[in-house]
């Protein structure tokens, strides 16, 4: 039962990635990205990272995909034909990415990983405590980066609206 769910999630994500690589319609690619992201969130749950899975659904699938879809729809202004995107040099791109994948696969197959059996209960409490004790500098910096991004995006939107 467990292995069946893992294979199902991996196939779902592969379907999403396949649609992104194959389609020429940007809106369909954004929908397929959402499918791939939800599949990856399911894989995170199997890898016992529950908080990461929920953050992935909330931020990526619920935020970034909406943003992308809005972006596509705004740049096309109700005209349906401009949503198609062509592709350049597909053969050279395929060769480069296949060679990258084979290099990574060679490294993975030659590595020797040690595993251990850790019991994960009550993850959220421990992650919250470690955010405020061990990783507090990164936490505060992230808050600052979010603030800068918020102000920057608002300013850029205002600049566009002044046209």
């Amino acid at each position: 039962m467990g292995i069946f769910i893992q294979i199902l999630l991996v196939l779902l994500t592969l379907l999403g990635v396949g649609i992104i690589v194959y389609t020429r319609n940007i809106v369909h690619a954004a929908y397929a990205l959402c499918l791939a992201l939800v599949g990856i969130a399911g894989i995170y749950v199997i890898l016992m990272s529950e908080l990461l899975a929920v953050v992935q659904i909330m931020l990526y699938a619920g935020g970034v995909v909406i943003l992308l879809a809005f972006g596509v729809m705004m740049t096309n202004r109700l005209r349906g034909d401009k949503v198609i995107s062509g592709s350049n040099n597909a053969l050279i791109g395929a060769i480069i990415s296949l060679s990258l994948f084979s290099a990574l696969a060679y490294l993975i197959s030659n590595a020797n990983f040690r595993t251990a059996n850790i019991d994960h209960n009550d993850q959220i409490r421990e992650i919250g405590i470690s955010f405020l004790t061990e990783h507090i500098v990164a936490f505060e910096l992230i808050a600052f980066v979010l603030l800068v991004a918020l102000v920057g995006a608002a300013y850029l939107a205002k600049m566009a609206g002044d046209e």
């Binding site: 929908y31 959402c34 659904i57 699938a61 619920g62 935020g63 909406i66």
Partner: peptide, 8 residues
């Protein structure tokens, strides 16, 4: 998180 998916 899941309720924000109905926007899609």
């Amino acid at each position: 998180a899941v309720v924000s998916l109905d926007v899609l």
